[in-house]
Design a protein around this nucleic acid. Structure first.
Lengths: 190, 190
DNA sequence: ACAAAAAGTAAAATTTAATATACCAATTCA
DNA sequence: TGAATTGGTATATTAAATTTTACTTTTTGT
């Protein structure tokens, strides 16, 4: 479960500009209007939109807040459609017979999805991830017990659990049939 | 599928500080070392960590890049464990008999998870979301056809699809049994 | 206890983001 | 056509982020 460098230094300003322009156009308001609305000078907005600026966090916040979008939406890059099918033999993260996790899509740094298989009576201990990581686990079929912070939580089909992943946690399949899981690892959770 | 204001203006600097300190402590390096490593002055880092700063995007980037984490990880807030069970009657987003989506967890602004039910032969047309939104749909059971950008993609059990959600897209259940879905809406995808 | 490293403080200098104002060109629209 | 809006340019000013240097306090480790 890796994190890759999203962009180079020169691109940071470029993408926030592209995104801002997109969001603003989407709302159909002019630079001047937005400027007055959020209390940032017109020129500042203009420079940011053209990627020729190095805005301050407070300015970034004012923009995001004024447009009613999360800050991170301003810093994102897009791509398009892709599909991950069950059979697709992708690289396995942990293939110790008992627990198998396969990445669903090429990681884009901020969010990662995995499909997981936990064998009957199987048990898997996960080390703590980086601080700031949030983990979402959903049972697609079977049963699962998640132990985190010393507490065990039992999940059935279609149940989901969310917990901070920056501490050790244990997955157990208490049943006698295979458990299919769905993981979302988020490196950003406001 | 809403977006809520994550924090107030005064808090922006506070959280980036808390997170930075956490990440740095986690890597076990001192302020001075990190400062030289990423080319930012010690005092600047110190002020940021104490939440008494309004850092520039380039500084934020240098930090994130130096720590090998996505920028957004620096701007995130944490909470703890919570579970969403199938029966939990939560507020429904769209309850027109055919398609039902229920939020799995209280939205934290950056990422949203939903459990979805699509009736046999059911069809649901979703309006375009904000630009910058990425959508991940996983079939937990049943079948699904997703139409986006004029192309139809068929999914079976445990298949997943990812696409830009800033355009209209249609979900169809071509089978004669209920389809259970899992949605991840991400407002940040590097 | 001692030395070393790390965190924190203080003040002045430098760099630069942000503002303000006025002006220009292209576009929209009545 | 002509007024108004919008994106963009130019310049000078202000406010503030960042750096540098040096010094103090706290923590860590042998």
């Amino acid at each position: 479960m890796n994190i890759e460098k999203p962009w180079g230094e020169g691109d940071v300003g470029k993408y926030i500009g592209i995104n801002l322009r997109q969001f603003r156009a989407n709302k159909g308001i002019s630079i001047d209007v937005l400027a007055k609305q959020i209390g940032v000078s017109k020129l500042t907005l203009l420079n940011i939109e053209r990627g020729e600026a190095n805005p301050t966090l407070s300015v970034i916040w004012k923009i995001a807040n004024g447009l009613k979008i999360p800050i991170t939406a301003l810093l994102s890059i897009e791509s398009d459609v892709s599909i991950s099918r069950k059979k697709d033999g992708m690289k396995l993260i942990s293939s110790n017979d008992v627990f198998i996790a396969e990445p669903l899509f090429r990681s884009h740094g901020l969010i990662e999805l995995y499909r997981g298989y936990l064998q009957p009576r199987g048990e898997y201990l996960s080390e703590a991830h980086q601080p700031g990581v949030m983990e979402f686990v959903t049972v697609m079929s079977g049963q699962l017990t998640v132990e985190v912070d010393g507490e065990a939580h039992h999940l059935d089909d279609y149940d989901s659990i969310r917990f901070k992943g920056d501490r050790p946690h244990k997955y157990t399949n208490p049943s006698s049939s295979l458990t299919m899981l769905h993981f979302v690892i988020s490196y950003n959770n406001l």
